[in-house]
Amino acid sequence: MSDLPENLKYAKTHEWAKLESDNVVRVGITEFAQAELGDLVFIELPKVGRVVKADEQCAVVESVKTASDLFSPVSGEIVSVNEELSDAPEQVNDDAYDAWLFCVKADNPAELDTLLDASAYGQLIAE
């Protein structure tokens, strides 16, 4: 698995997280995760305004064969979700790093430091 974006942080549960302005963290699933899942047919996103804790289950991605839980990489409030995915979940298959799922306004952006960097995540998925 190559070409993991260096500017992202990665969770062991295969979400990517990107710190943007104003403590907002954008979240999606990794290329590795989308390839493992195969064709996505449905994505259940959290409600905007929901308050989540780090590692709390807050979304579900469903492929033809299975449903998989996704977890928030940081604690905070869901401030936006990618509505386009409700009609076009395959966008995640097409470009997993462009097709984000939700944004969390982090209570403590330092929580991102506990996630993996590109090289550590690369090692994890190579195992």
Binding site: G38, D39, V41, S63, V64, K65, N93
Partner: peptide
């Protein structure tokens, strides 16, 4: 084989 590279839907 569960699927090949083009995926189940294809």
């Amino acid at each position: 084989p569960l699927q090949y590279s083009k995926g189940i839907i294809h």
